[in-house]
Amino acid sequence: MKKTTVLAIVSVLLFGQAFARTGDPGHYTFPLSEKVTRQKVTFKNRYGIKLTGDLYLPKNRGSEPLAALAISGPFGAVKEQSSGLYANAMAERGFITLAFDPSYTGESSGEPRNVASPDINTEDFSAAVDFLGIQPSVDRNRIGIIGICGFGGMALNAAAIDKRVTAVATTSMYDMSRVMAKGYYDKLTTEERTKMLEQMGDQRWKDADAGTTAPGPRILPEKLAGNEPQFVVDYFNYYRTPRGFHKNSPNSNGAWTATNALSFMNMPLLTYIKEIAPRPILLIAGEKAHSRYFTEDIYKMASGQKELAIIPNAVHVDLYDKVNIIPFDKMTSFFAQNLK
C-alpha cells in the first residue's frame, strides 16, 4: 500500500465527521436473550459527564451477589452494537454485565459530540466499575472489564491504574494512540505526522473563529468505490449494512470531529501495561485481522498472568458480532476462574 494511501485511510478512519445525537436508541443489532433482562441506567464519571448504559441481569441469578463485567467498544460504536452483544452473551453465562456508551457518543452526554480522549475514555471504564460496585446484586470484589477494538486499549489502560479491576479481556484490540500517532503498522513518517498536526492546528484557528467544532470527512462512504483495502470493506459490511448499522454510531453515520486525534497523538495509552500484573489478561485477536499486531505486541509487553488467543481464519470485524467465532466459552472460563 502506498504511503499516501495509508495516510488517507488513517485520516478518514480516525478523524471523521461530527454527527448530531439523533436516531432510534431502541434499535439493537442483536436479539435479547430469553435468559436475561436489560434495563437502561445512567451514571457519572469523575469529570461529571453522564454516561448511559444497559445493565444485563441473568434471570435465574439467585440471591447471592454475582461477578460483574463492564464492557465497551468498538471505537466509534455504541452499546446497541458489539458491546451490547457481548454483555447479552456474558449475562447468559451468569455474569451481571454493563454495556455503556463512552463520553461524547451515543446516549451519553458531553459536548461537542463525537470526540474521544485517551484519559476520559479510560475513566469511563472506572466509572462503570463505580456503578457496578454499588449495585446490591454485584460483588464489588469480583469486577472485570472487556474492551473491544479501540476500547480494548482503553480497558487495558483502565486496568493498569484501577486496582479494583480483577481481570481484563480484549478482542480485536487497537492501541488508538499508537495508530493515530504513527499510522497503521507504524508507517507514518515524521513529515506526515507534522503535516497532520499543522492541519489540525489550522483547524483550531477556524474553530476558534467560528466558535464551534468543525466536522472532518465521513468515516465510511455511502457506497464502496471498489478499490478500498479489505479491512475497510469489512468495516463497511458491518457498520453500513443492516448487520450492524445504528444511527447513534459514529462509524455507521458520520464520525469524529476534525481535531479528534490531537490528544491521542501526544498522550500514549498503555505506558504502564506491566502494572496490570499480577491480575490476569486475556487477549483475543483474529488470525487474519489487520489489527492483530496490536494484540501480539501488547502480549509481549505485558507481564504476569497473560493469555493470547488467536482465532483461526477470523478477521478484525468477525469478533464484533459473529457469535459462532467469538470465544465466549473461553472468556467465561477466564472470568469464572479469576473473578472468585
Rank of each mutant, 00 (worst) to 15 (best):
M1A: 09
M1L: 03
I9A: 09
V10N: 13
S11T: 13
V12I: 06
G16S: 07
F19W: 04
T22I: 06
P25V: 01
G26E: 08
Y28W: 10
Y28S: 10
T29W: 01
P31V: 07
T37N: 12
R38A: 14
K40M: 09
V41L: 06
R46V: 14
G48K: 06
G48R: 09
K50M: 12
L51C: 11
R61Y: 02
G62L: 09
S63P: 00
S63K: 13
S63T: 14
E64H: 06
P65T: 05
P65M: 04
L66G: 00
L66E: 00
A67N: 01
P74C: 05
P74N: 03
F75N: 06
V78D: 03
V78R: 01
S82H: 07
L85R: 13
A87P: 14
M90E: 13
A91M: 10
A99H: 01
F100Q: 02
F100I: 05
T105P: 00
G106E: 00
G106P: 03
S109Q: 07
G110Y: 04
P112I: 04
R113D: 04
N114C: 09
N114V: 02
N114S: 04
V115P: 00
D119A: 08
T122C: 06
T122S: 11
F125T: 05
F125D: 06
V129S: 03
V129C: 03
I146W: 04
C149R: 03
C149D: 03
F151Y: 15
G153Q: 12
G153K: 10
L156S: 01
L156K: 02
N157F: 00
A158K: 09
A158P: 05
A159K: 10
D162H: 07
D162P: 06
D162G: 11
A167F: 03
S172H: 07
D175V: 11
R178D: 11
A181S: 12
K182F: 13
Y184V: 05
E192F: 03
E192Q: 14
R193K: 15
T194L: 14
T194C: 05
L197S: 08
W205E: 12
K206H: 11
A208H: 14
D209T: 15
G216F: 09
G216K: 09
G216C: 06
P217T: 11
I219P: 05
L220Q: 08
E222T: 13
G226R: 02
G226A: 00
N237T: 13
R243W: 10
R243N: 12
R243H: 14
S249A: 13
P250M: 08
S252W: 01
A255D: 09
W256I: 07
T257Y: 06
T259C: 12
L262G: 01
F264Y: 15
P268R: 07
T271H: 02
K274P: 00
I276K: 00
P280H: 01
P280G: 00
L282P: 02
L283K: 03
I284Q: 05
A285S: 14
S291I: 15
Y299W: 14
K300E: 15
M301G: 11
Q305T: 15
Q305E: 15
K306S: 13
K306Q: 13
I310A: 02
I311G: 02
I311C: 02
P312C: 04
V315W: 00
V317I: 15
Y320S: 10
I326R: 08
D329E: 15
K330L: 15
K330Y: 11
T332P: 08
F335Q: 09
Q337V: 11
